[in-house]
């Protein structure tokens, strides 16, 4: 573990990205959602009626904001830190392992903060205005364990997606990244088509997973991105 820890330390040295950003973004999303809830409440009254509150759960703002940031952050981290680690006498494998450990820490921080905020949301009956920010279907509908695992899985998937594209760029250049994005979109479209075609089976399967369904899907995606990022890492050059 000595060698991967060097890359891990380099990743963690940039605390803004590795530690602080997840709590700050979650707080920002909370503030923005509350602002929207307060403005809505001027018309509907407080606490927000159930049918109005349910529209907020569908926003998916929380997830999309974190995912977007983590993808770009990981792509940049991998693209630039890779060259730094090699310059300092590191190996590709150790860089990948060390960065992955760093991603796990970032995802754990996001998951912990998200779960704590979910707890506060429960305690305050939706931030005192009946507003569900973290108790959303994609995060397990308010179940704390599911929320923790879901945010961790979303974060890891996003970080490894960024890492995969960042490493593909390092290994094969900008054209390859474009090709990889096109391929990823086509694969997702194919998966959706398969899902729709076999909807009776897939819907049964999803129903059997219950609140865990989004998390399981995202976790599978994270594993694919993890494998792609490792494969590209072994071919990347400075």
């Amino acid at each position: 573990m000595k060698y991967p820890l060097r890359s891990f330390r380099l990743y963690m040295a940039l605390r803004t990205h590795s530690i602080y950003v997840a709590p700050l973004m979650l707080a920002a999303v909370l503030a923005l959602t509350m602002l929207a809830g307060l403005i809505t409440g001027i018309v509907t009254g407080f606490p927000l009626p159930q049918e109005v509150a349910s529209t907020f759960t569908g926003l998916g703002m929380l997830v999309s904001v974190l995912i977007g940031f983590f993808i770009s952050s990981a792509a940049l981290a991998v693209n630039r830190t890779f060259a730094t680690v090699l310059a300092f006498g590191g190996t590709r494998r150790d860089f990948w392992v060390g960065s992955s450990m760093g991603f796990a820490v970032t995802a754990l921080i996001a998951a912990t903060c998200g779960t704590i905020l979910l707890g506060l949301e429960h305690l305050t009956d939706g931030w005192m205005i009946g507003l569900p920010v973290f108790a959303t279907p994609v995060l397990g509908d308010g179940h704390p364990v599911v929320t923790f695992v879901a945010i961790f899985a979303y974060s890891m998937a996003a970080l490894f997606t960024g890492a995969a594209f960042g490493t593909i760029f390092r290994a094969f250049g900008a054209t390859a990244v474009t090709g990889a994005i096109v391929a990823a979109v086509l694969l997702l479209a194919a998966a959706v088509a398969l899902f729709v075609w076999q909807r009776e089976f897939t819907m049964d399967f999803i129903r059997s997973l219950g609140a865990w369904a989004p998390t399981v899907g995202v976790s599978a995606f994270a594993v694919v991105c993890l494998a792609v990022s490792y494969g590209a890492n072994q071919r990347a050059t400075v």
Binding site: Y3, A13, L14, L76, N79, R80, T84, A87, G89
Partner: peptide, 17 residues
Amino acid sequence: LERTCFIHEDQRWHDEY
């Protein structure tokens, strides 16, 4: 490799390092 150091002339650093 831990006994080597080679910072390239056009070394890429993380923007915020």
